Simulated assay, not measured.
Amino acid sequence: MAGCFATMDTSIKYLGAFVPVLLIMWGRYLTQTLVMTVWLLRSKTSTFRAAHPKFQLLRGILLLLTSSASFYGVQYLPVAEFTAINMLTPVIVTLLAGWVLHERVSALRWALVCGGFAGALIVIRPGSGMFGWAVFLPLAGAVSYASFQVLTSKLAALESPFTTHFYTGLTGTAVLTPLLLSSPIDIVGTLQAATAGHLALMLGIGLLGTTGHLLLILALGLAPTSTLMPFVYTQIAFAAAVSYAVLGHAPDQWGWVGMGVVAVCGAASAWLNVRKGAVPSSAVAADTIAD
């Protein structure tokens, strides 16, 4: 699962040099819509019927905003560092739970919040000129996805995760299609000019995103979120390894330190959220990866 998302992010960064990012993102959501359409047609337990259509729409938009930050963010930031900053979601959930849901936040949780942001600052190193304005993209993505988790915490148990997964793809496709058609991108010309390898990579990105989320859903059917969460954070290591193998980039010493701090604080915060019931252990709400 973590390998799927790390490979996907690296593929997006590589393909973005040849194909417009908006077209790549549209292809990713269209692939998920088609795959989940087939899945639901063959399913005996899940249907296309949504119990809360407005919830599905809002949830889909939040995930699309997060994906937009991811697809464009990896064009400007190294994949491993981007992944680490984006993994701040659990600590931001803690902040939103206290602010929006008026839940009591313990001293330990506040310490993890501070620790997570300290780790992000180590990665970013403000004033160093390493990343510039682009660091706001993964930060915006983490905030958007944390908002999604707080929303989902109220309604996740009322929807099938497979039905929700379908509507996530459908919402993204429905929003991106008119944007793509009204953009200056020559869709037909771009696709005709793309190599067979680039077209295969576009399809692979959609399949990696869809498969990664389905693997997470299946994993959560076999083990509690608190058990799986540490493995989710191995995505940072996968991202560093795949990025180095494909793009030749390796984080520096301080980058590794900052990513380690984010991973430890984020995993601990996520574990506390599940243990205390701040975020339900459903496949939808526990998903900390939003590509």
Score class of each variant (00 low, 15 high):
Leu220Lys: 09
His198Asn: 11
Ala200Asp: 07
Leu203Gln: 00
Leu203Tyr: 01
Gly206Val: 00
Gly197Tyr: 06
Gly209Gln: 08
Leu203Phe: 00
Ala196Phe: 08
Gly209Met: 08
Pro224Ile: 12
Thr225Tyr: 12
Leu203Asn: 00
Ile217Ala: 14
Leu201Gly: 07
Leu220Ala: 12
Pro224Tyr: 11
Thr195Tyr: 00
Gly221Val: 08
Leu215Met: 13
Met202Gln: 08
Thr225Leu: 11
Leu208Lys: 02
Leu214Ala: 14
Thr210Gln: 04
Gly206Cys: 06
Leu199His: 03
Ile217Gln: 07
Leu222Asp: 07
Leu218Lys: 15
Thr210His: 01
Leu220Ile: 14
Ile205Phe: 00
Leu215Thr: 10
Pro224Asp: 15
Ala223Tyr: 11
Leu216Phe: 15
Ala223Gly: 05
Leu208Cys: 08
Ile205Leu: 02
Leu216Gly: 12
Leu203Asp: 01
His213Glu: 11
Ala196Cys: 07
His213Tyr: 15
Thr210Met: 05
Leu207Lys: 07
Gly204Cys: 12
Ser226Thr: 13
Leu222Cys: 05
Thr225Met: 10
Gly206Ile: 00
Leu208Arg: 02
Leu201Arg: 07
Thr211Trp: 06
Leu199Phe: 01
Gly197Arg: 05
Gly204Trp: 03
Ala200Tyr: 05
His198Val: 02
Ala194Arg: 00
Ala219Cys: 10
Gly204Met: 12
Gly206Phe: 00
Ser226Leu: 14
Ala194Pro: 03
Leu215Asp: 05
